[in-house]
Design a protein around this nucleic acid. Structure first.
Lengths: 111, 111
DNA sequence: TTCACTACTAAGTGTTGCTAATTACCACTA
DNA sequence: TAGTGGTAATTAGCAACACTTAGTAGTGAA
């Protein structure tokens, strides 16, 4: 992936994943697929799994092992209250950043 | 500063500074002040100087030493062609990220 | 001479996303 | 039976970035 996007995802990717989990519980592989559908085409699988471990450690999610018909058991992640609070923080920080950047000198900002 | 914002600035701060330099040449202290005016209140001085060294190393700017009435000579940074190209890249990546994030599940996205 | 302001530098830290390799499980097929 | 392919998760090592903290100097005014 372009280095530019890689660096920009730092600090946003966690919020992106949390917002997907806010819709419904999901497991790693599923989240990776959903991200690709949503345009985040080049995010490495390993990145997602590492991130999921992080949000589990931070206790933003509940985790259930669910047996799968094909393949090893799935780790299903469900957002908890702390996770929803973190997600609200994410949106407020993101909105603030967007509005600050909107106020930057705009010459050739792209439409 | 909130950790959340700190992480989000990774990958964007460089573009933010470049876009300030696109308006007019400036030196470190000046840029720091301008950022504060524009709402980036808590960015450490050291962070800006480190970033300026990075973009100088990447040859995105021309550097001139200009004597100052009060204090040591200023290092004035001027965007060059490579810098302007980098800035265009920044805006296109940024716009792409914004549009992807806009398409995320939107419940409680903030107003 | 002391103080405040200006301007830059340097060392070390933590978080993050990346690559790449490995393991595990099941169904299908040659 | 062995092999292949798709699903699912984990791990180790790496590089980039912003942060904190501290320090070095030059200048003018009290």
């Amino acid at each position: 992936m372009g280095t530019q996007m890689t660096e920009m995802l730092k600090g946003t990717l966690e919020g992106i994943v949390l917002s997907i989990l806010a819709e419904r519980p999901a497991y790693g592989y599923e989240i990776t697929a959903e991200l690709r559908e949503r345009g985040f085409t080049d995010i490495a699988e390993g990145t997602i799994y590492a991130l999921l471990i992080r949000i589990e450690t931070k206790k933003l999610v509940a985790v259930d092992k669910v047996p799968s018909a094909k393949g090893p058991p799935r780790k299903v992640f469900t957002l908890n209250d702390a996770g929803r609070a973190q997600l609200r923080d994410f949106w407020s920080t993101w909105n603030e950043l967007v509005s600050r950047i909107d106020n930057l000198p705009h010459e050739s900002k792209g439409h």
